[in-house]
């Protein structure tokens, strides 16, 4: 517009605040200064962000006697992994990791499958009841989970299931029942996110497939689903964390201590009378590991998937 913009993007990039979405890739001093400022800001923010966690890590590396004597805000007399070892064995963590994964992984996969199916249908086909259906799912996710505890408990108490699915003979006190509840609850949210995502995928893609004679299922499985990988990865991370971290449903629906998920193993670590905060810190960091691992693994997927579409300059 004005003649000042003669140099085009570079000029504006140079004068932009760091928040502008424009990445200057030119080695001009001004750009470099800007980059420096950006890194400083992000670095500081990250430091503030991770400080609480590091503080817990620090506590977990110190012995009880050390902190009891010197307080937490002090230099360590020595750092040790003893708390981690103790938490690992005394809370029987491996057993509970397994319990939790047996609930979390099936629940996660079924949730993603169901929600992508529904999202595919409502975003690709113009049913009259689309809106109602989406509301049914989305609003279902909005319900405070506590609201359905009592009816679900009763339902599960009365529903017999074959013994290969539940050794209690009922949905109650079975991990299968817990999976069902998680799937029912989380499908709503995932459907909502995925249908929004799928709507941005051009219809021409499925229509082309249809013209080629692809069945509805193939359109879903071979055309749409691969394109949703970033969204699925992002949802996978979130949902894994949510389902993994649930403790409420376990309290309501699991009645055998040995079937409890890891969140409750941690409760026994903190003790009824006496709490060794350093030990609890170590234990809770250990329980957080799987969600962190899933995050780092899937992050590649979704960030990678996302960046593929944007080789922008």
């Amino acid at each position: 517009m004005t003649s000042a913009v003669g140099v085009r993007p570079k000029k504006s990039a140079g004068s932009l605040p760091p928040g502008s979405g424009l990445g200057g890739k030119h080695d001009r001093p001004r750009d470099r200064a800007l980059r420096g400022a950006l890194h400083t800001f992000l670095g500081l923010t990250c430091l503030v962000w991770i400080a609480p966690l590091l503080w817990a890590v620090y506590a977990s590396l110190r012995s009880y006697d050390d902190t009891a004597q010197h307080g937490y805000f002090s230099l360590p007399s020595k750092l040790t992994f003893a708390n981690f070892a103790k938490a690992w064995t005394s809370a029987d963590l491996p057993h509970y990791y397994l319990n939790t994964l047996l609930i979390t992984i099936p629940a996660l996969l079924i949730t993603l499958l169901f929600s992508s199916l529904v999202a595919f249908c409502v975003s690709r086909f113009n049913f009259k009841f689309n809106l109602a259906l989406l509301m049914l799912f989305t609003a279902g996710n909005l319900l405070p989970q506590q609201v359905i505890i009592v009816p679900i408990y009763r339902l599960f108490l009365l529903t017999p299931v074959p013994s290969w699915l539940s050794d209690s003979g009922y949905l109650l006190d079975s991990q299968f029942g817990l999976v069902l509840v998680h799937v029912a609850f989380q499908t709503g949210f995932c459907t909502f996110v995925l249908s929004n995502y799928m709507k941005t995928i051009p219809h021409e893609l499925t229509e082309a497939a249809r013209v080629d004679g692809a069945s509805v299922f193939r359109q879903y499985w071979q055309v749409i689903l691969p394109l949703c990988r970033p969204a699925l990865a992002a949802l996978g991370t979130l949902e894994f964390a949510w389902i993994y971290n649930d403790f409420m449903w376990a309290i309501v629906l699991i009645q055998t201590g040995d079937k409890m998920p890891i969140t409750s193993a941690l409760a026994s670590l903190s003790g009824q009378f006496f709490t060794d905060y350093n030990l609890v810190a170590a234990g809770s960091l250990l329980t957080a590991l799987p969600s962190l691992i899933v995050f780092f693994v899937l992050q590649r997927q979704f960030i990678g998937g996302l960046t593929l579409g944007s080789t922008k300059g």
Binding site: K25, H39, L42, T45, C46, A241, F247, T287, L292, F295
Partner: peptide
């Protein structure tokens, strides 16, 4: 918006900022 660019340590920044989301209630 700041992170939506090619940036050294970009992934690291993202991870750190996102990490609290996956931490458990207890932690």
């Amino acid at each position: 918006v700041l992170l939506d660019r090619k940036l050294r340590f970009g992934r690291l920044y993202q991870s750190v900022l996102y990490m609290p989301v996956v931490l458990s209630l207890a932690l």
